[in-house]
Design a protein around this nucleic acid. Structure first.
Length: 286
DNA sequence: AGATCGCCCTGCTTGC
DNA sequence: TGCAAGCAGGGCGATC
C-alpha cells in the first residue's frame, strides 16, 4: 500500500538507477497495466523506444519519468501493490510482471513494473508547461512539497462541508495521504476522523499538517513503510520497516498514550482506526 | 457542482 | 479439507 513516502523512496531509486538511460525497447505483458494509455500497449512501447529518460519527479502518489526532447512523460501509479524494480536482465520474470523496459547501455539491468492486483499502471502523457503530466493537473501539491500552501489548505477546509479524514484523502486538496497515514496523523493530532472541517481553527489545521509531515518524514527516513510484503522499493528490497504504528491496524490494542483499546470503524468501504478517548467524536456528526 | 458510491483486481485470512 | 465470503484500498466515472 504505497503512500507518499514509499513512492518517494521509489523515485529516488529510479533517479539513481534509471535516469539518463536510453530506452532500447519496452514490452507490455499485461494490457491492464497500461489501460490509462488510451492509444494502447503497442503505441506505449513504440513511443518509449529510443528516448532518454530524465530525472524522475513525483507529486503525491504519482511519479513520472520525463522522456527528454519529447514533451512527454511516462506516468506511473503503484496502486495497491505495484513495484518498480531494477533487475538484472538474467533475473527470472516475477509472477506478476506487467511491463519490462530495456536500455541501450551496457549496464546489465532493466526496469520492471510488477503489480499483483493491477490497480496501478503506466501511461504516457504530454507535459503541462510546468512539466507535470497533463492528466494529473488536478492533483494537489503534497505536504512535503515546498510550495504546498498551508494557508490555502486551511481556507479550503473552512469552505468545505465535509469531515477531516475525507478531506485528507481528497487528492485535489492535499495529495499523497492515504488511509494509513491519515489515521496516524489524526491520532497524533488527537482529532477524530469525523470532525467537520468547517470548524477548524488555523492552529488546529497547522497542528494536523505538522503531524502529517512528521509521520511521512519518519516513514521516509526509515525507507518507506508498508504492511504488506508486496511493497518493495526500486531495488527490490523490502520497504517494510517494523516501526510499530500508533493507530492503523491496532484494533483492540491499547492506545500508546492512554491505554484505551483502539477502535476500528467501517468507513467508506475501508477502516478507520482511532482512540475513542484521545480522539473524541464531535458532538454533531455529519 | 459538489458529495457519494460502486467498481476494478488478486491473494490471504476467516468461517462454516 | 474445501469452498466461499470477507478484506485490503486509490482513483475514477456514474449518479444523485
Amino acid at each position: 500500500m504505497p503512500e507518499l513516502p514509499e513512492v518517494e523512496v521509489v523515485r529516488r531509486g529510479l533517479e539513481r538507477w534509471v535516469a539518463h538511460r536510453t530506452v532500447a525497447d519496452a514490452e507490455v505483458l499485461h494490457q491492464r497495466a497500461v489501460r490509462r494509455h488510451l492509444a494502447g500497449a503497442d503505441d506505449f512501447a513504440d513511443r518509449l523506444k529510443g528516448h532518454r529518460i530524465g530525472v524522475p519527479s513525483r507529486r503525491g502518489k504519482y511519479l513520472w519519468l520525463p522522456l527528454e526532447d519529447t514533451g512527454q512523460s511516462v506516468l506511473a501509479h503503484l496502486g495497491m501493490s505495484g513495484q518498480l524494480l531494477v533487475q538484472p536482465q538474467s533475473a527470472r520474470d516475477e509472477k506478476h510482471l506487467r511491463v519490462r523496459v530495456r536500455f541501450t547501455d551496457a549496464l546489465d539491468t532493466e526496469l520492471r513494473f510488477v503489480d499483483q492486483r493491477t490497480f496501478g499502471g503506466l501511461s504516457l502523457h504530454d507535459n503541462t508547461p510546468d512539466g507535470l503530466p497533463d492528466v494529473i493537473a488536478h492533483i494537489a501539491r503534497d505536504p512535503l512539497d515546498p510550495l504546498f500552501d498551508d494557508e490555502a489548505f486551511h481556507h479550503a477546509l473552512r469552505r468545505k462541508r465535509t469531515t477531516i479524514k475525507r478531506a485528507l484523502l481528497d487528492q485535489s486538496l492535499i495529495s499523497g495521504v492515504g488511509n494509513i497515514y491519515a489515521d496516524e496523523a489524526l491520532w497524533r493530532a488527537r482529532i477524530h476522523y469525523e470532525r467537520p472541517t468547517a470548524g477548524f481553527t488555523r492552529p488546529r489545521t497547522l497542528l494536523l499538517l505538522g503531524h502529517v509531515r512528521d509521520v511521512m518524514n519518519a516513514a521516509l527516513t526509515a525507507g518507506g513503510t508498508s504492511f504488506d510484503s508486496l511493497y518493495v522499493n526500486v531495488n527490490g528490497e523490502s520497504g517494510y520497516f517494523d516501526r510499530s504504528l500508533d493507530a492503523y491496524g491496532r484494533e483492540g490494542l491499547p492506545c500508546r498514550r492512554c491505554g484505551t483499546p483502539v477502535r476500528r470503524r467501517a468507513w467508506m468501504n475501508r477502516s478507520s482506526y482511532f482512540c475513542p478517548s484521545c480522539q473524541r467524536a464531535p458532538r454533531v456528526t455529519s
